[in-house]
Write a protein that binds this DNA or RNA. Sequence first.
DNA 1: AGTGCCACTTAGTAGCATATTG
DNA 2: CAATATGCTACTAAGTGGCACT
Length: 790
Amino acid sequence: MSGDQPHNDSQIKVDFRANDSHKHKDKHKDKEHRHKEHKKDKEKDREKPKHSNSEHKDSIEKKHKEREKERHKDGSLERLKDGSSEKHKIASLERNKDSSLEKHKNKHKEKDKEKRKEEKIKSSSGDVKVKKEKENGFSSPPRIKDEPNDDSLYTPPKENSKPLKRFRDEDSCDQKPKKIKTEDNKKTKKRKQENEEDIKPKKSKSKSKQNAQADTKKKIKKEEEQKWKWWEEERYADGIKWKFLEHKGPIFAPPYESLPDKVKFYYDGKATKLSPKAEEVATFFAKMLDHEYTTKEIFRKNFFKDWKKEMTSEEKAMITNLSKCDFNEMSQYFKEQSEARKQMTKEEKQKIKVENEKLLQEYGFCVMDNHKERIANFRIEPPGLFRGRGNHPKMGRLKRRIRPEDIIINCSKDSKVPSPPPGHKWKEIRHDNKVTWLVSWTENIQGSIKYIMLNPSSRIKGEKDWQKYETARRLKKSVDKIRNNYREDWKSKEMKVRQRAVALYFIDKLALRAGNEKEEGETADTVGCCSLRVEHIKLHPEMDSQEYVVEFDFLGKDSIRYYNKVPVEKRVFKNLQLFMENKQPDDDLFDRLNTGILNKHLQDLMEGLTAKVFRTYNASITLQQQLKELTNGDDNIAAKILSYNRANRAVAILCNHQRAPPKTFEKSMITLQTKIDAKKDQLADARRDLKSAKADAKVRRDEKSKRMVESKKKAVQRVEEQLMKLEVQATDREENKQIALGTSKLNYLDPRISVAWCKKFGIPVEKIYNKTQREKFAWAIDMADEDYEF
DNA sequence: AGTGCCACTTAGTAGCATATTG
DNA sequence: CAATATGCTACTAAGTGGCACT
């Protein structure tokens, strides 16, 4: 259904993006000012010729030429702006304006949260019962027997042909509790069976703990050999995420080790020994000394404030000015340390590696429902200075050390609860099988909750991922209807409906994020679709010989700049004019709309539909289309992979996934170019050799010289091929300079599309997915055949 | 409808590990 | 074999969206 996506072409071609994150300043302060600067930026942009509108700010002429060059290589993939180095400069300039409206909310917040949490726990357990007599609730079956033999359990033959699809399709909607899906058939039984089977052999389960453990181990071993195919099993209904969960808890950050006495800290030129606490925080700063962060006003201010809290009263009295602090010796010391680490002998390195491996084996896995699963992040985040992205009002604040007393453990009742480090207690032990996390704690900067969860290769993540793509595929079926629907709504007499329709159009056409509201002053000022402000778009009734052009310029997630000029339909344009009437630059563009309203509407259009599904859908469908368009079956593998990367790149551009160009980019391009030149010379030589060999053969007419010709021919071919490969590599790299492919590959592209493509063109999957990716997408690799269609 | 909390996905990057090169 | 380039992983910030509550 390539017809599905009428916008796609234009999306790709029209997107001129830039990434210099010129940051917004704090909202309350000098809004006017901010706006003006903003404007200036844009004006600058507009002055430039069309192609360079991806350039921004003090962007640099010298790079311009380069970019021109790049551009013709592939007209459809417009280059992102270069110069994230500028990005930093600018960012720092603007960030320095500081203004931390520290609100003291945090403390209150935290208390509040805690209370609520407690209440919640109580009520939710009640809740559960009301909703449904859940099968034995949380208590999981005692540990489990040998893995039931797959074949025997599996889906009965009748549905066997397409087992996966089948229940997927029905089920994918069950996030909205499709209500107790008629626990249909055998499949569901399967899980139960598994569980029951486990119980049986145990006889007196209390006694057989050890047996059980042994069993578990055995089973797990076995499993590792024959990779568990969770995707061939039935899923849990109704919000239950697991029945059995056992793990070892988190690994804590190593305790602070004081600096050797010889390493001094100087205040106002005077050597001073800091108290351990103050010293620790000082080292955090010292370690970042080379980083641009430490030059930023907000960062310094926040840091200094939090640092003082850790000082003794004498220290507090003495140290009153951060600028008089000299951390250089400390910084030097850490550099030496890391240098020393690099210089370690192989044996020492090996030893560390082994040690790490041991920790991984012990803490890196859990047992969830009979299966040993990898944990994603089993280490607690160490203390340090908060590094927000973009112009974050809280950058530089102290991220405090997390202790066992902060930790909530989640596991099943009948599991062996992890023990806290000696002399400590957990904050709480919970047995909530409606959530997927194993460990959580509350972080002190934003007061948000952090979790330890499973690896993407785990069943629990994989199922969800799969489901996500199934939802996107359902959207594919109704997208035409939905598009017609919102086009109708552009004419609505209700303002809210019009705004909703226009916003949805942007989300669909431009793959914008939903744009939830955020607390002002708590985070960097970034927006998504629903939170766009008047100042973020400009309307051009005519521009570059196109009509009704909307110019977007705003900072999105992670303060990545979104810059784009898009021709839109007349009605959209008129609506935007209407929405902007009588508004200030910092007023909301869609003042009658928020993500809640939008998503509720989407929900009515299709079950399970939310704004983010459009991103997934458009990303995947674009990949599929582009692959179809770009792949040439006659190409060699390298060229095909280039095509794949280009298709991938089209998606990354659509989704505005950017990266800072690698620091060594320029240099490595040059070396590559030298190589190419060398190869060209070599080719010329080879050709010359061939020629003379031919001439020689003509004269001599003997076998030997004929053979000579043949071998020279081959040599030429070989060199040609090598040259080709290098050139392809250069193109690919150049085009990729500031585009990050990883994010879309990992989160937006239905892996089955890629797998199918690989199979169709005889490309080994390894060329597309590395090991980790293959683990994450094991389900797709296993199930997609070459004619899979998204 | 608005709010706050919570759970979970999506995001870019620092820095280590490994491959490649001189 | 050291130096350098490149690839990958771990890390953690910053989004989205559901739900309960008012």
